[in-house]
């Protein structure tokens, strides 16, 4: 049975799309049939980060409105045959999304794929709501700073009350915290929140800590998910996060990473 995972945050610019691309590519690398869906209607980004923007013919909205079949809109990644992208429309807005339409598309994808990743837009309005509505699990992307943590907390509240699982009284959405743009030097200086501080407020399990790294931006610019660059610290961190998302116990490495902050830093620099 396919797992529907929403990648969300509330706040913009924290790395939802980057994380969706890397988690999706990471899962595909491990042999899981994975599709990533861009819910940010009107601000089409995911296909660019995935390096397939020139291959978009039909999109998510066309499928919802019945103008195209889902097979026509899905783009198979050139590097990873297990990975597909369902791009969104650049010319429409969030009102083009309907709950019934999204449900139909997700149900159709369930039979084909192992993982369905929904890249949520920022905010808590319609687009973000529908991206999380059908989720079984949620990856809450958070930067170690107060406004991002606050918005993530708000989103966690919505995940526990405004999803289908919550409304039907089923088991709650399983939440994961993905801490991105983490800079140990700035944390040591007290300029960024510590991992423990963020965990104390959000109190959900940690999926991974992605360090701030120039390779993330350059990977986005060339359309290669950073997880495919194993030489990069961020890529390695995403690969760890993918393992945990698949249920592989790698929890201790996260704690070690935090405790051996200085050593890790030295290792990261030479990487």
């Amino acid at each position: 049975m396919a797992k529907v995972i929403v990648i969300t945050s509330g706040k913009g610019g924290v790395g939802k799309t980057t994380s969706t691309a890397s988690l999706g590519a990471g899962l595909a690398l491990r042999g899981k049939k994975t599709v990533v869906i861009d819910f940010d209607v009107g601000l089409r980004n995911l296909d660019m980060v995935m390096g397939c923007e020139r291959r978009v013919v039909f999109d998510f909205i066309n499928v919802i409105q019945g103008d195209a079949k889902i097979k026509q809109a899905l783009i198979t990644d050139r590097r990873l045959e297990n990975l597909s992208v369902l791009p969104t429309s650049q010319t429409r807005d969030k009102d083009a999304l309907t709950r019934e339409g999204v449900e139909k598309v997700i149900n159709e994808l369930r039979s084909e794929f192992d993982y369905i990743l929904c890249d949520s837009p920022a905010g808590i309005e319609r687009g973000a709501h529908l991206a999380m509505y059908f989720a079984d699990e949620a990856v809450v992307v958070t930067n170690p700073e107060v406004s991002s943590v606050r918005d993530s907390d708000r989103v966690l509240g919505l995940l526990s009350s405004k999803t289908r699982r919550a409304e039907k009284g089923e088991a709650p959405v399983k939440n994961h915290l993905l801490l991105t743009r983490y800079d140990p030097v700035r944390v040591a200086k007290g300029e960024m929140l510590k991992v423990e501080d963020v965990l104390e407020i959000l109190s959900i399990p940690l999926l991974g800590i992605v360090p701030e790294s120039p390779t993330v931006l350059s990977a986005s610019n060339v359309g290669t998910p950073v997880v495919l660059n194993q030489a990069s610290n961020a890529g390695a961190a995403y690969a760890d996060a993918v393992s945990r998302l698949m249920g592989v116990q790698t929890e201790m490495r996260v704690l070690g990473l935090e405790r051996r902050g200085l050593l890790q830093r030295l290792l990261w620099r030479t990487a």
Binding site: R150, D151, D153, R154, L156, G157, L158, S160, S161, S203
Partner: peptide, 8 residues
């Protein structure tokens, strides 16, 4: 018994 989140 659950954490009370921002906005709740």
């Amino acid at each position: 018994t659950e954490p009370v989140r921002s906005g709740q």
